[in-house]
Nucleic acid binder design. Structure first.
Lengths: 337, 337
DNA sequence: AATTGGCACTCTGAGAGGCCGAGTGCCACC
DNA sequence: GGTGGCACTCGGCCTCTCAGAGTGCCAATT
């Protein structure tokens, strides 16, 4: 029923519609593609595809456009991998140069992603829930005030100023620092936090409240909602893709809300470099019915967060997939260094 | 020539146009405001105001809209201070609660600013050029690799991983840390950096390259363009204010480019709490001809950066001014703590 | 059974024309 | 200086029409 030619027709419809934005008709199809059959035949095929729910007409006597299901079938079975151009490779390569600061790496990567896909790019910061602690530092800033710095193996650095009920003194600070590092050397931050509850036992009565203040601050880090966050770039690409602002206002809102998008990205996170795609309604988010999300996990060795691009369902999926995968791999490589 | 009534007419035109978005005619004006003269008189006044370049007609037989010069005169001489509502005060108050982390404070402030003004809000991060160093920390992460953490008096924390040509060892690290703190105790970071050039003299030959690597990293911090940055919020408000995307695509681009906006904000920075306004063409930025910027400096005691809102020239200036000023003052107060 | 050419039908989008109303500018008058 | 009256202008909206694109269906062909 859905034989080869009909699949070829679907592919041609998707490709034409993505590049032109106009509903595509039977005549144009045979002109632009080597289908070697007549428009009438194509029309019959289109009727079948429409029956199967893969394409639709905006109105009678218009051409067809792919439905969400049509795009889904396209990306799952029809899309051919589109290799990156030399220029694209070079653009991504330049990410490798320069400093090792996570903020800067993420910032550059998200820009590159937006620029290469001409879509809105989002990168989730390495989640504190799944990363491991590489190092904890405790610095006395002033009497009864110290700075707690935590470095994760994804290169993320979190710092908190802690107001103490008493001054610790350099020696106690050093001991506490050592104990903190020892206690958090476990698998992930979330699991390590349990061990901290009994940490105060190793200290004399007078400094226990201060120790507890530091521990409480540390425990609060992964719990504060702010810690799960994402950065976006390329929002001005939205205006290019659709002339109607109602289409992309929800996207801007979703980016600002963060929570919704983070949930979505987390659901989609897979192995590093593996692509996950949500098309239109599949996002199950009000306002994002005409928006697709192409995402991939990244991280040093294992996946610690997700990145992706956000665009209209009418999107160049093969191209986006190639770029997203490439950026995810490069980013993972940098973080593993 | 520009007597009281004509100024009242201008004010009325600005207010009506801002609230309705429609060109305002003479009849509507006398109906909505207590001008106690006839429409014909208003028409004569309008002719004078138009002659003076303060208002204009989109086309013959349409009402008048204010020009940039009209808005300028309005904000300079006619706008009355609009006190914040209790709800607005409360919303800002909640900023004071919670943790002391600069990132979070800025993040919350920019959201509040966007929400209360219904505009796009931007906050420049405390500039590293003008802030003082409060503390520098040097942490050995691994052999031949350490983390450099710098804390400014605006609460900003910068960290860099430094790859060293040799391992420093705990003792040398401590000495270097002390010397760094001593050298940077000067007035501003930029000035303090000069003293660092001779720092390596105080070390033995074998660790000098490593010392120099740390110093170089520190010196590079304020120079990397990335360090002057800003955060934005409320971009989805753009869609609400103007149905036409060509209007706000340049704004989105300006926010992503950062450089342009940072330059503009820096030019406008004044004393904390003092308001600076650029209207339409005054921004002197291509693409921002129909955009206004209401900004104020903030900082702990002295001004270290600028924040503001970005919106269409057709904007509620008194309201925006009140909110921007309030947020700037609150933010300054928090940073000074 | 699949494919094709022909043909009638439908619907959108652009363009032309016409009308209404809002708003102005001007002028004579108070 | 302020006011009422009046002619004039012009954009927005509504309707109407028409061409073009595209379809669905059917009978003919391979």
């Amino acid at each position: 029923m859905l034989d080869d030619r009909r699949m070829a027709v679907l592919r041609a419809i998707v490709e034409d519609y993505v590049s032109t934005g106009e509903p595509v008709g039977s005549r144009g199809l045979v002109e632009r593609h080597q289908l070697s059959v007549s428009p009438a035949t194509i029309r019959n095929d289109m009727a079948v595809l429409e029956e199967a729910g893969l394409i639709a007409q905006p109105h009678t006597s218009a051409g067809r456009i792919p439905t969400d299901a049509g795009y889904r079938l396209f990306v799952d079975q029809l899309a051919t991998v589109k290799p990156l151009s030399a220029a694209e490779r070079r653009a991504i390569q330049t990410l490798l140069d320069g400093p090792l600061d996570l903020d800067q790496i993420v910032s550059r990567a998200v820009r590159a992603l937006a620029q290469l896909t001409h879509q809105v790019a989002v990168i989730q910061y390495p989640s504190l829930r799944t990363t491991r602690v590489r190092h904890i530092e405790l610095i006395e800033l002033a009497p009864a005030r110290c700075l707690l710095v935590m470095i994760t193996d994804a290169g993320r650095v979190e710092q908190r100023v802690v107001e103490l009920p008493a001054t610790l003194g350099p020696q106690t600070t050093a001991v506490l620092r050592a104990k903190l590092n020892e206690a958090t050397a476990g698998p992930t931050l979330e699991e390590a936090l349990v061990d901290l509850d009994s940490l105060w036992l190793g200290f004399t009565e007078d400094v226990r409240p201060a120790v507890q203040a530091v521990v409480d601050t540390l425990k609060a880090i992964p719990k504060s909602g702010y810690q799960e966050r994402l950065v976006a770039a390329g929002t001005s690409n939205l205006a290019r893709s659709s002339a109607d602002f109602r289409r992309f206002m929800p996207v801007l809102e979703a980016i600002e809300e963060q929570v919704v998008l983070l949930k979505l990205l987390t659901e989609m996170s897979a192995d590093s470099g593996q692509i996950a795609i949500r098309i239109g309604h599949e996002t199950t988010q009000a306002g994002l019915e005409e928006t697709s999300l192409v995402a991939a996990g990244y991280g040093p060795g294992r996946t610690v967060a997700t990145l992706g691009v956000l665009g209209p369902t009418r999107m160049d999926y093969p191209g986006s997939i190639a770029v997203v995968r490439a950026i995810a791999l490069y980013l993972s490589r940098i973080l593993a260094a």
